[in-house]
Amino acid sequence: MNLVTISGPPSSGKTAVILKTAASLKDRGLKVGVVKFDCLHTDDDVLYAKAGIPVQKGLSGAMCPDHYFVSNIEEVVQWGRAEGFDLLISESAGLCNRCSPYVKEIKAICVIDNLSGVNTPKKIGPMLKSADIVAITKGDIVSQAEREVFASRVNMVNPKAIILHINGLTGQGSYELGTLLADNPREVETLVGEQLRFTMPSALCSYCLGETRIGESYQMGNVRKMNLEDNS
């Protein structure tokens, strides 16, 4: 089974892109499944089921969603293999703009939209910078100039990535993304022993363990303090 990971900021159009791309792959006779990782709530599984795409959803709740992802992906891969998928797409939202649930040697796609502002590419960490393919959405509602500026900013932070423009409403560009996903598939039997492309943010402090009170005496473990400059 071939596996790809797709991530991107909330509401960037990941699900719309995946729905259109999966439809084009199904037309080519590929069996596609999706696993949706989210934080508190998602109805996207209903959208996938409606489109006839087998789907699993995982809500991380009080846990960091990307830590949750990496703790569950192997089991999901085994589910996908048991279902007999040709391609399993993992979808997850990059909630803190830093994380990237990308695994080495597994195709990684970042979905980002033109409306998010030209400085956004600079603000997003490994999720954008270490992606193999960057899919830029919502190009139909901004000007050509803004599309070009945005794409060049993406190119600046990730010069190696293939940049595609995709319209999640009409599907323009999704067939092409499908080609990129289906080309040179890597047969994945297990992810055990594989490595993440980038470390996840570290945190283990009293707040991770349920502390709610504010104040230095309640802060234990991995705590980082802001450097407040003296402006007086």
Binding site: G117, V142, E146, N155, E176
Partner: peptide
């Protein structure tokens, strides 16, 4: 021609486009 950002073949202008900056 498919993948380079500086060599995009097609530029689009449509009625629905807005400036957002």
């Amino acid at each position: 021609w498919r993948f380079s950002t500086s060599k995009k073949l097609v530029a689009q202008l449509s009625q629905n486009m807005n400036f957002v900056m």
